[in-house]
Design a protein around this nucleic acid. Structure first.
Lengths: 155, 155
DNA sequence: GGCCGTTAGTTGCAATTGCAACTACATAGG
DNA sequence: CCTATGTAGTTGCAATTGCAACTAACGGCC
């Protein structure tokens, strides 16, 4: 955002600011409801939707890290805390002696279900309310392009 | 992002993921160029563009915090580090004995100028390249709406 | 089979962050 | 004028985070 910024740069600036504001508010909403932070929700959701994988609901730590967009060491600690809270379980990977797989426990599944309405409400009022259906699709498609192109560069 | 997610929720999910990936890459680009993190750039840029204000290039700490979307305590530490690095200076606010104002030093201005090309390159290739001019304007306008509506709720 | 370069995950350590408590000052009301 | 209430900024402390170093184990190759 220099003095003369074109529309793309303005879009970037708003993009960053909007997300910072909304995430702040979402975290606050979780905290008010005495629920864990968004990062936990992400992990729970990723694990819950990992059933398509080869390992039926189990996910390698590195895959979890990639999907949640956090560092591997961060996933380790995150999983530590969530395991201590009884939300996920870790097992040795059957195919790879070095590997570890994480799964959701029933308690973890229940917590995700409890967190979702709180999350959804924030998404709807802060984000969705400002988007037409067509616009939402366009934005989803555009960002998906960015994500794909990014991953193509860093596989 | 539940099982049946409408387009707005998908848009939100992509929005969050895209930003996490891009910010990660941008920080890496700054680090590779031996430059400070993005948070420093933000502060430098905000201060450089604060000349419009009543205080001519000086900004109250709380205003800086609001514009950078960080907590007040965080602004204090951030400013501490940047002051130690000679990039900003702090003075007592003339209008308010409790207040402090921050300004850019020449060195700070120079650093921002040096960081911008690195930042711009990342924005252009990771973000701008996937946006048509019209689309960029739409996105900028939409996110601006979100930000404004948000601030109206929390003034 | 045994060695070598890679990869998976964890851990130590230092840096960043947020929340809550605190000090200093400002402003309103009596 | 003086007290009461609120605000600005900083700081202590605990939690989260990333980077780099480490260990264990895979896979190719001789």
């Amino acid at each position: 955002m220099p003095a003369k910024s074109d529309s793309r740069q303005r879009a970037w600036a708003r993009f960053v600011t909007a997300q910072a504001l909304l995430l702040e508010r979402i975290e606050a909403a979780f905290a008010e409801a005495k629920l864990p932070p968004l990062a936990w929700y992400d992990v729970l959701w990723i694990l819950e939707n990992a059933r398509e994988g080869e390992l039926r609901g189990r996910l390698r730590m590195a895959d979890l890290a990639r999907k949640a967009v956090v560092s591997r060491s961060n996933v380790t600690r995150l999983t530590d805390r969530m395991e201590k809270a009884g939300l996920v379980a870790r097992f040795d990977c059957p195919m790879d002696g070095r590997g570890t797989v994480a799964t959701l426990t029933p308690k973890g599944r229940a917590l995700r279900a409890k967190m979702w309405p709180v999350y959804k409400k924030q998404i709807d009022t802060l984000f969705g309310a400002h988007l037409g259906a067509r616009e939402a699709e366009a934005i989803a498609a555009t960002f998906e392009k960015m994500i794909d192109s990014f991953k193509r560069k860093t596989p």
